[in-house]
């Protein structure tokens, strides 16, 4: 179990109720989906699994996840009106319930986002208690993103040296890696990496990684 260091994890966080796992966690998962999309979404399909499927309306998890997709923080009272705000902003939303299978945490959401250019991002995230989350899938790749750190996300060609090139750029800017995950669906096709780091990732890093041959997508996420 994670050791609690700061007293503001005890008195705090300041958040929109009613539940750190069903509200605050849902906001954070929605927010990560938006950050990975990297721009304004025009269509969102939200699939609730397990306990979320049963209680998402009562807990306001539907509003919370849409609030996150709109870019709100967990303490933003606009979450209460997120569905109306989404409509005004022209974000088309569809809610569904789904059974992803026993291997998924009971509080799991799958989110599919599309922007106006047709770029599509889908993630699977679980709210694992106390507002802590873990994003376990990004566009079909196995992932491991907690939202607690700054993180560099890439999708790239599965060939030797890709991860070394990315981490070399991070090292050049003095950025320390806290956690990382590399995965692929099949050999020689596309691969995914999520690198959680201790420092904020400057825009220059993103631009440099974009220039590496074989990189398909790069995103720098902030702690959420």
């Amino acid at each position: 179990m994670k050791r609690v260091e700061s007293i503001f994890e005890i008195i705090g966080p300041i958040m929109v109720g009613p539940s750190s796992s069903h509200t605050a966690g849902a906001v954070r998962i929605g927010r990560i989906a938006r950050e990975i999309l990297g721009g304004k979404p025009v269509k969102a399909t939200i699939l609730f699994h397990g306990s979320f499927a049963e209680t998402y309306r009562g807990h306001g998890s539907d509003k919370a996840v849409v609030g996150g997709i709109l870019g709100f923080s967990t303490d933003d009272l606009r979450i209460r009106d997120a569905l109306e705000i989404a409509e005004k902003e022209g974000l088309e939303i569809e809610f569904k319930t789904v059974d992803l299978g026993e291997e998924y945490h009971p509080n799991t959401i799958k989110i599919v986002l599309e922007d106006s250019s047709g770029l599509k991002v889908w993630i699977v995230g679980s709210s694992i208690g106390g507002g802590n989350i873990i994003v376990t899938e990004v566009n079909g790749f196995e992932a491991d993103i907690s939202g607690d750190y700054h993180a560099l996300i890439t999708i790239h060609e599965d060939k030797p040296g890709m991860v070394a090139k990315i981490t070399a750029i991070l090292a050049k800017y003095g950025i320390n890696i806290a956690r990382m995950k590399v995965s692929r669906v099949k050999r020689g096709a596309l691969a995914f990496s999520s690198i959680e780091v201790d420092q904020e990732i400057p825009l220059e890093v993103v631009h440099e990684v974009e220039k590496v041959e074989g990189i398909k997508l790069v995103r720098a996420l902030k702690p959420i």
Partner: peptide, 18 residues
């Protein structure tokens, strides 16, 4: 009650016991 209705609260130590 305010917490249940998606009001802004300070978790102490949780939202359910705020």
């Amino acid at each position: 009650e305010y917490n249940s209705a998606m009001g802004l609260v300070c978790a102490a130590p949780t939202a359910g016991s705020s």
